[in-house]
Design a protein around this nucleic acid. Structure first.
Lengths: 351, 351
DNA sequence: CTGAAAGCGCTTACAG
DNA sequence: CTGAAAGCGCTTACAG
């Protein structure tokens, strides 16, 4: 005899009463509740989570599905979402997709089934089958980044934010503006809408200003400093070298800055560089960028998920959070226009 | 009727047989196993994890306890450990301690109890009570970083690694060498042995070379770029300004580099800077540092934990993994000695 | 190799 | 407010 039964015997009540007394449920006299709690504490009894999960059908757990835990952005999201989940006294189950094999396993083996009361998916662009599997989980799902039919979604306006960065470069007087994008990581985000929209925003801003576009001005690579290095190297060998470049992530931008400088060019004199994320180090790299509030997005997504868990019948949340253009030293007028005052309005620009 | 019973009925066998057939257990004829599997697939049946947990007492889950998910180091560890855990088809439960309140909750409320078959604790220096609680969990525990009585441990030789960096600076001819350490984060690592040993290694190297020490040469701050900025600012106002500084983490070192340069000083001419971690960006920051193989430590710790789960009676693993001094452009002889060849042996130095 | 039954540790109508 | 009993969905001796 141990567990809840031991407590019951010792406190002189039934198992049902112990169960009620130890939770927030009403229907137990204060005196009994107190006595049971004291007994439980004395015996060092803690309700077995497995038993209670089976009985209630609730896991008290939220699952978060991430491409990888190693990028700054996902670390922020995990921490932001985690803080909300912990505050609600829920557990956080972390699923890293990793490569395509890992992704396959999580979905095909239904590793999420029965393990969580809700699922948060980050930067996931699910296939038909994968969407279907998420739906069959029969728990609320919130997507961070990509809109997924039928699920809640928290995101930023990638199209508008990208256009806004590029307009900033255009306003400075740049006419040849390159784009370095995060390559569709086949394993994790094939056909990511987020990435497509960032590119579309860039295209739109150039088009509305009547500026030249071209494949040579666009490079894609993996979302790391090394990816940025490779991409900018290719970009700098374009027939007409751009005087400015918008880069899809700050981590890539850091690598790009390094290469540009090693090539004997200076930033922003020879090349203006703007990133996306407002990484913790962007400040010290003096990188102009878009703050997309990673931590806040993580919090908001977790909150939306908890609400959906509480009220499964409610409409799935659809949130578009604001971003902010953060201007630093890496962007300036092109050399030819140096001295001429730029047409820049303010230091920070909300959108 | 649904769940395992539906499969049993449909396949014309008992529930016990379904249970056996769907797992790796022997004692089922191949034909039956095949039929049951086919039926299960047809019905889209997946074994309920809650039921099987209660019946077996196994959670199929590993818990990882981290101070925070936002630093590069912990992200690497989480990912490295996660890859091993996933390969073993186990789930990963993430507990972020956050502040002292969060830490209290995890331990006092016994949030770990019954939730995992093993626990991995990162950079944790537990109090007596906390150790006791971990022990009472009655599952194997592996500590990454700090040695904890009775538990497995994976770590690096912080003392030796720190001494080795400082000797490198001494060999370059430096005589005034500062130390910037990670401040004991009261919430998370009070009295961390790891940090104490890094400092002790620094002290030892100075002592054996007969070089001056002093409180003014030591600064401590939080483990972020901003912490590094503040600490180096204080250091540079010491009565005798050091010509070199060893910094307890690369993230702090990045902040320090920024401040030093903004102060009009150059690295390494006016100040040599060495870090600790070999952060993904250390390369592009040209930072000399100690590669402590974060990812590998995470993998090794997870592997040790899985072994302990398989064989709870075995001796807890005690692993000390090698580190490597990585020399880059941020360290050089002091200005006075410029030109004079340094007494450096090789570019990389194992220990 | 297969099945009936007990049991894992809780929660929750139901009855009092 | 309290208790006896059924049930959550599996696994596993035990018997055949």
């Amino acid at each position: 005899m141990q567990g809840i039964e031991a407590v019951a015997r010792q406190a002189g009540v039934s198992v049902s009463t112990v169960s009620r007394a130890l939770r927030e449920v009403p229907g137990v006299s204060p005196a009994t509740r107190e006595r049971v709690r004291a007994t439980a504490a004395e015996l060092g009894f803690v309700t077995s989570i497995s038993g209670s999960r089976l009985a209630t059908g609730r896991t008290g757990t939220v699952a978060i599905v991430v491409p990888t835990a190693t990028t700054w952005f996902f670390g922020q999201i995990i921490a932001g979402a985690g803080s909300v989940v912990r505050a609600a006294a829920l557990d956080l189950l972390l699923f890293e997709l990793g490569d395509s094999e890992g992704r396959r396993r999580v979905f095909a083996d239904q590793r999420l089934r029965g393990r969580a009361d809700g699922v948060l998916v980050l930067s996931l662009n699910p296939s038909q089958d994968e969407s279907e599997m998420l739906r069959r989980l029969d728990v609320p799902v919130v997507s961070l980044g990509n809109v997924i039919e039928g699920f809640g979604c928290v995101r930023v306006d990638n199209y508008g934010s990208a256009a806004s960065v590029v307009r900033h470069l255009i306003n400075l007087g740049h006419e040849h503006i390159g784009y370095i994008g995060i390559a569709d990581h086949a394993a994790v985000t094939p056909g990511s809408r987020v990435l497509a929209e960032r590119l579309a925003g860039y295209e739109h801003a150039l088009k509305e200003a009547g500026l030249p576009q071209g494949q040579a001005l666009r490079q894609f690579d993996e979302n790391t400093a090394d990816g940025g290095r490779r991409a900018v190297t290719r970009l700098l060998s374009a027939p007409v070298m751009p005087t400015a470049v918008f880069i899809g992530s700050d981590e890539m931008a850091f690598g790009a800055l390094d290469i540009v400088r090693s090539a004997g060019l200076s930033v922003p004199e020879d090349l203006s560089v703007a990133g996306f994320d407002n990484h913790a180090f962007s400040d010290l790299m003096h990188l102009s960028t878009v703050d997309q509030g990673a931590w806040t997005q993580g919090e908001a997504a977790a909150r939306a998920l908890l609400e959906a868990i509480e009220d499964p019948q409610g409409e799935p949340a659809q949130l578009v959070l604001p971003t902010q253009l953060v201007l630093r030293g890496s962007t300036a007028p092109p050399r030819l226009l140096r001295g001429k005052p730029a047409a820049e309005p303010s230091e920070k620009e909300d959108r």
